[in-house]
Amino acid sequence: MTNQALKVKLLIVEDEILLANDIANRLSDNNYTIVGIADTATKALDLLSKNQDIDMLLIDIVLKGDRDGIELARIINDTYNIPFLFLTSHADSYLIERAKSVRPYAYLLKPFNDRQVSIAIELALKNFAIKIPERQILGKKTFSPTENQVLQIKDSLFLKKNQHFERVPIEEILFLEADSNYCTVYTRTDRFMYSVGLNKIEAQLPQDRFLRIHRSYVVNINLVDGFEGNMLFIGDNKIPVSKSHKETVFRLFRTI
């Protein structure tokens, strides 16, 4: 996969064009891909229909046109299975109650800075991945940008690299390797290191595709090229199979 394909793809829905362009520039500088900018809900829905790989939306609550951002969010909930966060400079109780009704996954109060934008995006992805929307839209956040984040959304893992997330299709993951208190995720084109245990990341992977073959290794069984003795070959890598897992592993490959 190309580096461009790994970038998280965002749609900005904001009718203040100068602000929208500013947000787009900030996010582009932080390795996010901006699929488009829409100043109305209608334009946003058109862009969504033409770009099925959009990962997330940033939506201004107050939009010009027949639908505001809350009504757009309701359509996204009903039609698309993707996260969104709200942008707003309004804090009146009626608007907040309406916004809470569509279960946003994060929010940004205008004005905001680069750090706040990045944290809000990470928070929304995290909340969406664990299916916990931001019910208290102005509530206190417990998210820290220094947290180790491994998020599963649809058929991809969102993996943290250099202070931003990259979207890695699960089918692109070769194997996981544990080393002391660290775990490294190896993909076809890159690797991601985390200061978490192997079990935590293994739990995010589909059990029918990934198999523990050693206390330090979990492999994508669909990408095993061959084996010899107690070693599995995955691309240019030789992965050891421990005695305790050997019977289970090689019984599986004898049945393929």
Rank of each mutant, 00 (worst) to 15 (best):
Thr2Asn: 12
Ala5Asn: 12
Leu6Tyr: 13
Lys7Asp: 00
Lys9Gln: 09
Leu10Phe: 02
Leu10Cys: 01
Leu11Tyr: 04
Leu18Lys: 11
Asn21Gly: 01
Asn21Met: 10
Asn25Phe: 11
Arg26Met: 15
Leu27Glu: 02
Asp29His: 09
Asn30Ile: 00
Asn31Glu: 14
Tyr32His: 02
Thr33Ser: 13
Thr33Ile: 07
Ile34Tyr: 01
Ile34Asn: 03
Gly36Trp: 13
Ile37Leu: 14
Lys43Ile: 05
Gln52Val: 08
Ile54Gly: 00
Asp60Ala: 01
Arg67Ser: 02
Ile70His: 02
Leu72Ala: 01
Ile75Ala: 05
Asn77Ile: 01
Pro83Asn: 03
Leu95Glu: 07
Ile96His: 06
Arg98Pro: 00
Lys100Leu: 01
Val102Arg: 00
Tyr105Asn: 05
Tyr107Lys: 04
Arg115Ser: 08
Leu125Ile: 15
Leu125His: 05
Lys126Val: 12
Lys126Glu: 04
Lys131Thr: 11
Arg135Val: 15
Arg135Leu: 15
Ile137Arg: 03
Ile137Asn: 07
Gly139Met: 10
Lys141Tyr: 06
Thr142His: 11
Phe143Glu: 08
Phe143Asn: 02
Ser144Cys: 08
Pro145Phe: 08
Thr146Trp: 04
Asn148Met: 09
Val150Asp: 07
Val150Met: 12
Ile153Cys: 09
Ile153Asp: 01
Ile153Pro: 03
Lys160His: 04
Lys161His: 10
Lys161Gln: 08
Asn162Met: 12
Gln163Lys: 14
His164Arg: 07
Phe165Ser: 03
Glu166Cys: 06
Arg167Gln: 11
Val168Cys: 04
Pro169Lys: 10
Glu171Met: 10
Glu171Asn: 12
Glu172Pro: 03
Phe175Tyr: 15
Phe175Arg: 14
Glu177Pro: 03
Tyr186Phe: 15
Thr187Gly: 10
Thr187Trp: 08
Arg191Leu: 09
Phe192Ile: 09
Met193Ser: 06
Tyr194Trp: 04
Leu198Gln: 03
Asp208Gln: 14
Arg209Val: 00
Ile213Pro: 02
Ile213Trp: 02
Ser216Glu: 12
Tyr217Glu: 05
Val218Ile: 13
Val218Gln: 11
Asn222Glu: 12
Leu223Asp: 02
Glu228Leu: 10
Glu228Lys: 15
Asn230Ile: 12
Asn230Cys: 03
Leu232Ala: 11
Ile234Cys: 09
Asp236Val: 14
Asp236Gly: 09
Asn237Gln: 13
Val241Asn: 06
Val241Tyr: 07
Lys243Gln: 14
Lys246Leu: 13
Leu252Asn: 06
Phe253Tyr: 14
